[in-house]
Simulated assay, not measured.
Amino acid sequence: MRRYRNAHPPKASTTTTPRTAGDLLAAATELRAERERRDAEQRARERARQERSAAAARQRHLDTLAVDQPAVWQRVDKLIATNKPRDYDTAVQLLVDLRELSERDGNTTPFRQRLTELRTTHARKPSLLKRLDLADLDA
């Protein structure tokens, strides 16, 4: 072994000083911080992509409702007429969609009038009125 080492001396560039435990821990901390930063950026990009996708889907949904608003209002009336809590929830969600559609179009007056009529017609249904209040659907 000695003859081999003498025949093949180590090159000067390969001699390095040994790393200490502190050096290794510092390098590991830097690598961890970099990995966490990359992961956070990836999560932020994914969250932004999902939000854009949800907003686009919401706009498509509102566009389909905008095509035939009278039919949507009739569906709301039918759902309320069933006197079932689950149907009330569906009706309230449709009303929220109609409100957002009227705000998007910049014409909230007809919606507010219809909502006022709906509240007066169904004034004896506290469960429905409570749901409308919780959805911030006031006339």
Rank of each mutant, 00 (worst) to 15 (best):
E100H: 13
A12R: 15
A56G: 01
A135W: 06
A44M: 11
K125P: 02
T108D: 04
D77R: 09
S13E: 15
R124C: 01
R131F: 03
R119L: 08
K11Y: 11
V72N: 05
S127I: 06
R32F: 11
R124H: 05
L115Q: 02
S102H: 14
R47N: 04
R131Y: 06
A33N: 07
K130E: 07
D136Y: 01
A139D: 09
K11L: 15
S102W: 13
T90K: 13
R119E: 12
L62P: 07
H8N: 15
R37S: 12
E100R: 15
D138Y: 09
A33L: 03
T15E: 15
E36Y: 03
P85A: 10
D23T: 07
T121Q: 09
D77L: 04
T109S: 08
I80M: 02
A123I: 11
A91W: 08
R45N: 07
R37G: 08
L94Q: 10
A40L: 10
L94F: 03
D63I: 08
M1S: 14
V72G: 01
A54P: 06
S102L: 05
L31E: 15
A71D: 06
F111I: 03
Q113M: 06
L94S: 00
R35Y: 05
L137R: 00
A91H: 13
Q50P: 00
W73D: 01
S127Y: 02
R58Y: 00
A55M: 00
P126M: 08
F111C: 02
T108R: 12
R49W: 00
D39Y: 04
L24K: 14
T120S: 09
K78R: 10
A28N: 06
A139F: 06
A54S: 13
R104A: 10
A40D: 11
P70C: 08
P110A: 02
L79C: 02
R60S: 09
E51G: 03
P85Y: 05
R2W: 10
E41Q: 11
A91P: 10
T20K: 03
D87C: 03
K78A: 10
R60E: 13
T109L: 09
G106H: 11
E36V: 04
R86G: 04
Y4R: 10
A48T: 04
L134C: 00
T82R: 12
L62W: 07
A26P: 05
L129I: 07
S53R: 07
K11G: 15
L101G: 01
L65M: 13
E30W: 05
E103D: 13
A71G: 14
A7C: 05
P70T: 10
R5W: 11
E41C: 01
